[in-house]
Design a protein around this nucleic acid. Structure first.
Lengths: 226, 226
DNA sequence: ACAGTCAATGGCACTCAGTGCCGCGCTTCC
DNA sequence: GGAAGCGCGGCACTGAGTGCCATTGACTGT
């Protein structure tokens, strides 16, 4: 149980570091300088952060824990894709609770390649988590690429919504964008769902290659069941 | 135009480095040691590779160039998603032309966190490329998250196919797996395509929530056109 | 055959991120 | 009030990555 006092110190160091990075440039600021500006020793900085680039991501561990808890809390019988979507929405919400941090971080990651790389790695940790959840909860006869594909897809939409928000300086509605994207995902997922024996439905559709493909998908999905 | 001799040196250094990393452990091998084992100076190693971790990815620049050329070579009027898929298939093919390198690299990236991170970053460069291509070539009224979502999706399936192959020691057929995944993507893409005014088609379908959702999608897509 | 040029390399010195170790001071619990 | 635990400062050390200059060696024109 990490105490609040320690977390305060951590965020204080992170803030002064980010301010310095923005003012002087990432490469021109040594960890020594960050320590001095934060009135702590260099050694202490490295006790709170594993590396220099982590100074810009003080919140990642918390968020990862949040997502993990969300997934674990999903009620039995939930569609696993829905569980991941819910966790992602939760994660985005958490992001939006620290707008200043996110906006400043964005400026830095756009400029400093090193920090962008670190950002990518952070997202990968999140994707790895959801992927492993999907691997465990998706029906065992699903194609082998599905866990990774769906995890990457959902994360990409998450990144896109957050990215647009931050790029537009906080004027868009990222939660709505995420919801729209997730609806898109759900629709795309449809023909992967199992079709139970059910009453029939009559449809009149435009006769295009696309429609035919959809119908073939539906037929395949229906036939995969006894 | 990088000459063949230089490339030979680069791959020679990379191979001795990977052998050393596997035998002694990544952290226990200094760049100095790699240089000595390759009969070059430390300075020369850093002329061929930007950093220690890049020693394991001597082929990434080539591959990135390959994908870029594939995308640029796509004939006018090609579905942009198809163009990205074709480039991805080409990239996978290229990967499979160096099985020993890929298999040894896999062993390393599973053990060494630092190298796994680097691998993630490499993939991100590839995704960034295809994303920007999709941004430029997808219809301008497509939802804003689509370029990133599709790029991430295709890359994920690529990674999955390659990952399974490498995990099973080279016994699976990754190109077939990729093709299957891409077919899945194409089907999922369907209701995003534009429907032209076309003859009608009569379909009899099971009446489930899923089918209804598909039909609604089709209707939406059809109505978005005048 | 000889001189001149350019590219790759070697060698050196330097900065700085990251780590191990030890000792100090402050809190907390007995 | 002593003792154990924890966070911190300070120090020394390793090793990655960089800038600079001298050297070698191959290739070209005369």
């Amino acid at each position: 149980m990490t105490s609040r006092k320690i977390l305060d110190t951590k965020y204080r160091i992170s803030e002064t570091a980010m301010a310095l990075f923005l003012k002087e440039g990432y490469a021109n600021v040594t960890v020594e300088a960050v320590a001095a500006a934060s009135s702590v020793s260099r050694r202490t900085v490295f006790r709170h952060f594993e590396s220099k680039d982590e100074l810009v991501f003080p919140d990642h561990t918390e968020r990862l824990g949040l997502v993990e808890r969300c997934l674990a809390a999903a009620p039995e019988g939930t569609d696993p894709v829905d569980a991941v979507i819910a966790a992602t929405e939760e994660s985005l919400h958490e992001f939006l609770s620290r707008p200043e941090l996110v906006l400043r971080r964005y400026k830095l990651t756009r400029i400093v390649p090193e920090l962008r790389k670190r950002e990518v790695v952070e997202h990968e940790r999140y994707v790895a988590l959801t992927r492993s959840y999907l691997r465990d909860h998706l029906p065992p006869d699903a194609p082998p690429f599905q866990p990774m594909a769906i995890a990457a897809l959902i994360d990409a939409i998450h990144r896109s919504a957050l990215g647009n928000w931050v790029r537009e300086g906080g004027t868009t509605d990222p939660e709505a964008e995420l919801a729209a994207g997730m609806e898109w995902v759900r629709r795309m997922m449809v023909h992967q769902s199992a079709f139970s024996t059910a009453p029939l439905l009559l449809a009149v559709l435009p006769d295009t290659p696309q429609t035919r493909r959809v119908l073939i998908s539906l037929k395949d999905a229906a036939e995969e069941l006894p």
